[in-house]
Amino acid sequence: MSTAARPVVKRGSTVMSRTFLVDTWWVAWREMKHFVGERVRVIMILVQPFIWLVLMGNLFQRMAMLPGFPARSYLDYMAPGVVTMVTLFGGIFGGMTIVWDRRLGYLNKLLAAPIARSAVVSGKMLAIGIQTSVQAAIIFGIAMFMGVTFKTGVLGAVMVIALAAILSTVFAGISLSFGAVITSHEALMAVMNFFTMPLMFTSNAMMPLSFMPGWLQTLAKINPLSYAINPMRSLFLTGWRPGELIQGVIILSLVSLALGVLATRLFKRSLA
């Protein structure tokens, strides 16, 4: 048995941290293959936001006439809301993939490989971030096509997409944390559904804060969605507000990181 026949495998715990990013990428690569591989899903991603914009934009059209409404038309107000809504739905079901992988036995295959456990979590979060960026870009395009006001140009559009991507990893983190401990996808689905609507309606995605009762305003202020919607809405309707934007990016990134760490810990614990 010659040593040359053995693989060139980089080993050792110091290498673990160096390969973390590489491992993350390959876990994400697989998720992206799934994303692109599902033609029906890709079509739905295109159709869904279009329907939301048209349907809800028209449904609530008259609301913009109310005194104190912060936008020219409801559609203008609503466009960043739809971006975050799609982000919410895309991210919150990210934990489902871990439940499927567990059920199909692929999770064990990943874990039996010499990759960092944390890379399984970070890879899935990265994939959600990339997918959401694509979706956000599409919605943005549709919104522009429908004549929605946008004040900050190309760089502003990049910021909107970046905010959506970071926000989606926050929801993916919540979802993966639950996915680490809940082994049935029915149960996880129920838990995640429990999250989506309250998160949506305790934010100012659909309705301005000033239209809400006081207690709801308080909830909206701690809702992570608000930290994306507010800077996004400024980018759409008013123009650059660097303070708000930087605050949003930093807070969302920290929350995302914390949830990633939490998910990894729960995930590791579920293995013992």
């Binding site: 495998v9 390959w26 599902e38 199909l104 036995g105 692929y106 295959k109 490989a113 010499p114 990759i115």
Partner: peptide, 22 residues
């Protein structure tokens, strides 16, 4: 469990596994 990835091709499955083993 026969844990191969349905949405990938056979070669892609092996390619991915090769990368997971660095």
């Amino acid at each position: 469990d026969i844990a191969v990835d349905d949405t990938l091709t056979g070669r892609e499955n092996l390619f991915l596994q090769g990368h997971l083993y660095h």
